[in-house]
């Protein structure tokens, strides 16, 4: 069956057979390898998921088996305890931060990809340099800046630093993509007398859609999972995002592990769903030139 893909084999019968056997073997091992890897990747979550339906006692006695009865009330308890609130906060912070970030990055990437101006390289490094910086370095001063701006312990205290530290990568992605775009449409638009902003809005943004989808997904993953800023800049339980909320949730429930496990599963579902729904576009966007070989 493997012959289909390799029709140009040398004619020698001996070689033909050996190579077919080798291909079978390598195919077998490749599948085996990836099945094992998939199990390693998924089993921890599956283990948490099955145990989230047990009682604590069952968890300790038989953590391998499927639950005997399904204790959905673990989920009800987790939900009631505020997981829903944390997820909602995460959605809000993620959506707003990603939108602001993408808008700003698009504009910056456009200027850097299409305009010739003094200090362009300097500004390019100014923005992309952020890729290399550890957010920890800024932590203590940031904290004081946010306090001075009176936005400590608000959504903005998470949104703004997240935008700032996400901006370099999204700008990098979008700019790389723009560099590969043909200039014809823009030139046509300029000849028609369109302003810079309308070229940007009506020509560039639509052309960039594939990379925007990928960049948004990558950025959303990052913001959704962000931990340190939320840990340091948020006190109110009502504002906590999911990563932090889950931590205080686990802390407050102490040893009620099955409920904590239910909470883990609830928290994991939104991002898994988002990825599985968008994965095709995601790969396409990246392939379309975001990251080059």
């Amino acid at each position: 069956m493997s012959l289909v893909s390799t029709p140009q084999q040398p004619a020698s019968a001996d070689y033909f057979q050996r190579s077919a056997r080798a291909q079978h073997l390598s195919r077998f091992f490749a599948y085996l390898l990836f099945i094992v890897l998939t199990m390693i990747a998924l089993y921890p979550l599956i283990w948490v998921a099955t145990n989230s339906f047990k009682t604590d006692l069952q968890l300790f006695e038989h953590s391998w088996s499927l639950p005997k009865e399904w204790h959905w009330e673990n989920y009800a308890r987790a939900w009631k305890f505020g997981i829903a609130k944390y997820i909602l906060n995460s959605v809000l912070v993620t959506v707003v931060a990603v939108l602001i970030n993408i808008t700003i990055s698009m504009m910056a990437a456009y200027a850097l990809a299409r305009y010739q101006f003094k200090g362009r390289n300097l500004l390019l490094y100014f923005i992309l340099g952020g890729l290399m910086l550890a957010p920890e370095v800024s932590l203590i001063p940031l904290f004081r800046i946010l306090t001075t701006l009176k936005i400590y312990d608000t959504y903005l205290a998470m949104i703004l630093p997240n935008v700032a530290f996400g901006l370099p990568f999204t700008t990098f992605l979008i700019r790389s993509y723009m560099l590969g775009l043909p200039r014809d449409y823009e030139e046509a638009a300029v000849i028609d007398g369109a302003s810079a902003l309308s070229v940007f809005w009506h020509v560039i943004v639509p052309l960039c859609r594939p990379i925007l989808a990928s960049a948004m997904l990558l950025d959303a993953m990052r913001v959704w999972n962000e931990f340190m800023f939320a840990l340091t800049f948020i006190v109110s339980d009502n504002l906590k995002t999911m990563p932090l909320g889950l931590m205080s949730f686990a802390g407050a429930l102490r040893e009620q592990w099955t409920v904590v496990m239910a909470g883990i599963i609830i928290s994991a579902i939104p991002m898994i769903a988002l990825y599985l729904l968008t994965q095709k576009q995601f790969i396409r966007g990246l392939a379309a030139g975001g990251i080059k070989g």
Binding site: T103, I104, S105, M107, A108, Y110, A111, L112, Y115, F117, R120, L123, F126, I127, G130, L133, V137, S138, L139, I140, P141, L142, R144, I145, L160, P161, V163, A164, F165, L167, P168, T171, A196, F200
Partner: peptide, 28 residues
């Protein structure tokens, strides 16, 4: 000015939340 205006928000955000803190950090 056009390219600079396009870049302005990014520069402002980066300056306030990334670079200024680094300088302050050395001071602290």
């Amino acid at each position: 000015l056009t390219p600079y205006l396009f870049l302005l928000p990014a520069i402002l955000v980066m300056a306030t939340f990334v670079y200024l803190p680094i300088i302050e950090n050395f001071y602290y």
